[in-house]
Design a binder for these strands. Structure first.
Lengths: 411, 411
DNA sequence: GGACTTAGTTCACCACTTAATACATAGCCA
DNA sequence: TGGCTATGTATTAAGTGGTGAACTAAGTCC
């Protein structure tokens, strides 16, 4: 079934997008290389790049001499063309970061949030955070292409963007409208934090180069970003990828979602610690979940119980990953999130082993399982890629048509 | 990241495809309606439909008078344009069916297969089956657009199409090459049987109209066809959707795949019967699995043990479906397969209930769960849609360029 | 039979891509 | 120094495709 919509100058947009994306991701390239890589004719490449150059989207980046012949002029996306902001609305605070187009970090601001913050407070923190990073980088609104926002819940994209985040008590919060009311006029892109972090791994981390991948995120909660053919899988109402609330042990432990036997109840930090606590018979030392989790990992080499809990965790995690492999048949699985990275550091071989036992042979043999490479807080970075992705997808045409950058909300 | 490939007269192909698909799926339509539905200008519609008409792909199908005004001429795809064959290579036999372009069944042939048939026998049965249906319908090779083949295993698409089907002992069988060697010159499309059956449900059954759906197939084995945005999800090596070997009860029952706790071990016919047998303490009457399964269902109203086994099955199935909902966020779940239909008939409300308990509220509320409507053996029908889908996707252009229809193997 | 309506077609025009060709640059060789 | 060639870039001409506007076709209603 052919996808809807006509096509007229979509051609030009598509080719602009193609060239722009190539330049963005594959560094400086000459027109000739672009022509070879994209299959477009040299004429078209010349034509389009000239246009992009006039619009200051791309600039020349030196030459490279050839053995006899006109030297090729390298082109690249101009990092100074515009800026993007990434916002991470987490369960404990709001982080706002400012980047140039090449995703160099220019400024960062963090604001704490109360437990279960009401949307108004979060919005307040976001708007002030944005003001601050713009001020600290000496940048004007007009130089900002857009703001990406990662939230700790599912996002219903549509005419009204609605955020459902049970862990912070948000139900159908119209985040974009609230931000508009608070005076934010920039293009906004809202997405689930797990998905933005996944996108960051895909663009700059362990997912680079893969077309089909699953980024598993394990922290207090457990989620996954599924990338198919280069784009994030969303499903019909963009709440796909809720791996954490997948049943892995039918009739098993209670999960905070209300169901039983969810993967999150076994491999989420809380679930792991609960098991440890039970086996141990007493509380785990440490201020918060992260400290306690660290204590568990640290205890493993000498404590049989700690080792056993971790081994069990590797088992559940391996089986959960096998499920992802069987269902999605990705070429790569990336384990991220603070708990995931910590577990992986210690248990990756065992996790791989268990996954191999539970997954079907053929898809398993096509998949590599590795750790995320972007550290713990790529949510904001990933969020900031949303406006960039939009720019690349649109071939940077919307900006020309309407330089005022009006209400383009959807991601 | 913009999808690769250039675009030149892809425009025309895309619009041909768009119009052709609309006509194919949404019955006879006037040019005017087509213009409205697709967003193409009236001029383009006229132009393209004239072309399609000349090529005999579409014909006029009567008029519909209007209150004052020129009557609109209805257009439709000409069923006689060409024929397609669908082949179901199952674990016990080969079924070959012949259809016209509108998927009216013209002939059917079935050949038994020995247990674990070697590929050569299967190929032999397929080729003779094809000869027979062509003969019985009095049709020449040249009138056949292509042959779709559903196989009981995963299919590795690529330059060489390889079939991995452990249940019949096939490992990396180059089915297309074998058929070519056996003298089949028609375009061939090979896919997993669960996927072809899923496609049949999407086109003509309970999946009609949905853009995101999962067709769950429950028989001896358990599989699923995941449809995203109208196309079957394949993953990186097209073995996605192996729902049956997803772990649902960590450390639980042994599965024939070698792992433990697979969904198939609980809701596949064999697994259900094994549980029944265990609870009952003696064998279940019946010749084969299907008869035994029927006996179980039939016993349920009076036997507590049978009822309990079925209720448990509904539980596992509901949880398994919840996993699909959480991961894929479809708008529809269709339960098919002989065991699935039988179970659903009896237990659908309970299955829905359990799924609701295990799935997250929001995605669950967006999903309807229903039974397949195509009976038990839609594999061949679905396989036959593969060449049709290709025709529609290509806008029927490949045929014009090279009327000889050479070696286009991939689906 | 004339006014009005709706459906479908024709045509001039514009946008886009490509192939062919012209132009530019640098090293090599005489 | 002046060709010559290899390489890379720009430009032009030709072809294709989509669209809007004018136009034709085929009806109804008064």
């Amino acid at each position: 079934m052919a996808s809807k919509r006509t096509t007229v100058r979509d051609l030009r947009r598509h080719n602009r997008s193609l060239l722009l994306s190539k330049l963005y991701f594959d560094g400086p390239l000459s027109r000739h290389e672009l022509s070879q890589l994209t299959g477009l004719s040299a004429a078209t490449v010349s034509n389009v790049t000239a246009e992009l150059g006039e619009e200051r989207l791309i600039t020349e980046a030196g030459q490279v001499e050839s053995d006899g012949g006109r030297p090729r002029v390298l082109l690249r996306v101009d990092p100074a063309y515009g800026h993007v902001a990434g916002v991470d609305i987490g369960e404990t605070g709001v982080k706002v970061e400012l980047f140039d187009l090449a995703m160099n970090r220019l400024a960062t601001v963090e604001h704490p949030l109360p437990k279960a913050p009401d949307p108004a407070t979060a919005v307040e923190q976001v708007t002030s955070g944005l003001r601050e990073v713009f001020a600290s980088a000496g940048i004007d609104d007009s130089a900002v292409l857009g703001v990406g926002i990662g939230v700790p819940g599912t996002v219903e994209q549509g005419a009204r963007v609605l955020v459902h985040a049970p862990t912070v008590g948000w139900d159908a919060v119209p985040l974009v409208s609230l931000l508009r009311d608070a005076g934010v006029r920039l293009p906004l892109f809202v997405d689930n934090g797990a998905k933005t972090q996944g996108q960051a791994e895909m663009w700059f981390g362990a997912g680079r180069g893969a077309r089909h991948a699953v980024i598993a995120l394990i922290g207090s909660g457990v989620g996954a970003a599924v990338v198919t053919d280069g784009t994030t899988y969303r499903g019909s109402t963009s709440s796909a990828g809720e791996w954490g609330h997948t049943t892995i042990a039918y009739g098993g432990n209670d999960c905070r979602c209300g169901a039983r036997g969810c993967l999150e109840a076994y491999i989420g930090a809380g679930g792991v610690l609960a098991r440890y606590r039970r086996v141990r018979g007493k509380d785990v030392p440490g201020e918060d979940e992260q400290a306690q989790f660290a204590a568990l990992l640290e205890a493993a080499p000498r404590s049989k119980t700690a080792a056993r809990v971790l081994d069990e965790t590797a088992g559940y995690l391996g089986a959960g990953i096998a499920n992802l492999i069987n269902l999605f048949n990705p070429e790569r699985i990336v384990i991220g999130g603070w708990a995931g990275l910590a577990l992986g550091e210690l248990l990756l071989p065992r996790i791989r082993e268990v996954a191999g036992e539970h997954a079907l042979r053929h898809p398993f043999s096509q998949t590599s399982i590795q750790l995320g490479s972007l550290g713990l807080d790529a949510v904001a970075t990933g969020a900031a890629t949303l406006p960039v992705a939009d720019l690349l997808d649109q071939g940077a045409t919307s900006r020309i048509v309407k330089p005022g950058a009006p209400d383009s909300d959807a991601a």
